[in-house]
C-alpha cells in the first residue's frame, strides 16, 4: 500500500446534541479509490464532508479531532479553509451547474484563484477531456450549463472540480442521480483519475464499491467498523457487522 494521504484522528462530530461521528480513526492512502460504504444515515456523507471542511457550512455542527492532509491538520487554528478546499475537491450527489455557460463553469475555479487567464481555454479543454465531456460540448461551450443532460452536468461538475487541480477528490454518491449509462461514464472517469488523484467515494451501492474500490471503509451508526483493502474486506471481513452487512442480513 502506498503512502497515507489523509489521516483522520479521533474525529468526533456533533449536530446539536446528536453525536453523529464517534471516534473515527482512519488512513486514506494516496491515489487509488477508497470507498466508504454503509447503510443510509450511518455518517458516510458527514465523514466525507469533514475532509474538506464543508461541514461547518451547516450551522450547529461541531467537530473535534484532526484531519491531516499530507501531515498537516486542516482543522488547526488559522488554517486557510479556501486553500484546504482547493486541494480537496468535491463531487456532489446531484449535479449543480453554476448559473453560467459550460466554459465559465470550468473556468470558474481558476478564475477565482486568479490563475493564468491567458491559458484558460487550454485549462477548460484539458479538464473537459479529463471528465470525458469535451467531444460532446466543444461546439457549444458558450451555452448555459443548465441545458446539458443530468449525466453531462455531472461530468461537467467533475471537470469543474478538476480545474483547480485538487490532490484529493471526494465523491458523495456521485452516480445516484444518474441513469446507468451516465453512471458508467462517471465511474470510468473515476477509474482513470485514480492514477494521479486520491479519490474517496461514498456509496451505498455495494456493487459499485466492488467495481471501483481499492480500499474500503465500512461505517455503521456513526462508527468506523472496519477498513482495509477491497480484497481483504470483501473476502474475509473481520468484524461480524461487516460480514452481516456484506451478506445482506443487516442494513
Amino acid at each position: 500500500m502506498e503512502a497515507t494521504q489523509i489521516r483522520i484522528q479521533d474525529l468526533n462530530v456533533w449536530y446539536g446534541s446528536q453525536h453523529i461521528l464517534r471516534n473515527i480513526n482512519a488512513a486514506i492512502p494516496a491515489r487509488g479509490i477508497t470507498a466508504i460504504i454503509g447503510p443510509s444515515g450511518c455518517g458516510k456523507t458527514t465523514l466525507l464532508r469533514s475532509i474538506n471542511r464543508l461541514l461547518e457550512e451547516t450551522e450547529g455542527m461541531r467537530v473535534s479531532g484532526q484531519v491531516l492532509l499530507g501531515g498537516v491538520d486542516i482543522y488547526r487554528p488559522g488554517a486557510d479553509v479556501t486553500a484546504v478546499r482547493t486541494r480537496i475537491g468535491l463531487l456532489a450527489p446531484k449535479p449543480f451547474p453554476l448559473p453560467m455557460s459550460i466554459y465559465e463553469n470550468v473556468a470558474y475555479g481558476p478564475r477565482i484563484h486568479g490563475w493564468h487567464s491567458g491559458h484558460l481555454y487550454e485549462i477548460v479543454q484539458r479538464n473537459l477531456e479529463a471528465a470525458g465531456l469535451w467531444d460532446e460540448v466543444k461546439d457549444r461551450l458558450r451555452t448555459p450549463a443548465s441545458r446539458l443532460s443530468t449525466g453531462q452536468q455531472q461530468r461537467l461538475c467533475l471537470a469543474r472540480a478538476l480545474a483547480v487541480e485538487p490532490q484529493v477528490l471526494l465523491c458523495d454518491e456521485p452516480t445516484s442521480a444518474l441513469d446507468p449509462i451516465s453512471a458508467q461514464g462517471v465511474e470510468s472517469q473515476l477509474q482513470r483519475l485514480k492514477q494521479d488523484h486520491t479519490v474517496v467515494v461514498v456509496t451505498h451501492i455495494l456493487r459499485q464499491a466492488r467495481r471501483l474500490a481499492d480500499n474500503v471503509m465500512f461505517m455503521w451508526l456513526g462508527e468506523l467498523v472496519e477498513e482495509g483493502t477491497a480484497v481483504q474486506l470483501f473476502t474475509s471481513p473481520n468484524d461480524p457487522r461487516t460480514k452481516a452487512y456484506l451478506a445482506g442480513s443487516i442494513g
Binding site: R85, T86, I88, L90, A92, F96, P99, I112, H113
Partner: peptide, 27 residues
Amino acid sequence: VPQGLREASLSLGATRWQTVKHVVLRR
C-alpha cells in the same frame, strides 16, 4: 438559491463573498 450551488462554489476554494457575488446573486 439551492444550498448545493453554494457548496459547489465553496468546495472549489471560493471565498464566501466570491460565492455570493458570482453564484448566489447571479442565480
